[in-house]
C-alpha cells in the first residue's frame, strides 16, 4: 500500500516540477522527487542504490541545477 502511495507521490511531484513557472522551485521539487525515489529503492531492498540516489542526485544534481538557474535566470521561457 505505502509503495503505491509513494509511486503516486513521485508522479505528482514530477508533474509539478514540469509545470512550475519558477525554475528554482522546479529544482527544489526535483530534489524532493529524488528523495521519494530513494525511499522507493530502499523499500525494494536496494539500500546501496538508495544511498547513491540521495547523495548523487539529490545533493549534487540539485547543486548543479542551482548553478545553472543562477546563470540563466529564474523565469521560464525566452526573454
Amino acid at each position: 500500500m505505502i509503495f503505491e502511495l509513494l509511486l503516486l507521490v513521485a508522479t505528482i511531484l514530477a508533474i509539478a516540477a514540469v509545470e512550475a513557472k519558477d525554475m528554482l522551485y522546479a529544482v527544489l521539487i526535483l530534489g524532493g522527487l529524488d528523495l521519494v525515489v530513494a525511499v522507493i529503492f530502499y523499500l525494494m531492498a536496494a539500500p546501496d542504490i538508495a544511498i547513491t540516489q540521495i547523495v548523487v542526485t539529490a545533493v549534487f544534481g540539485t547543486f548543479i541545477y542551482v548553478v545553472a538557474v543562477n546563470r540563466t535566470g529564474r523565469k521560464e521561457g525566452i526573454e
Binding site: D48, I51, F60
Partner: peptide, 25 residues
C-alpha cells in the same frame, strides 16, 4: 565510515566519496 565499512554494510567507495565531497559543498 561508509567507505571503510563498504564490505560489511551498504555503501562503498563511490557513495562515501560523494558524501565527503558534499561536506566540501
Amino acid at each position: 565510515y561508509v567507505s571503510l565499512h563498504g564490505h560489511i554494510s551498504p555503501g562503498g567507495g563511490f557513495p562515501g566519496g560523494v558524501i565527503l565531497a558534499s561536506a566540501f559543498l
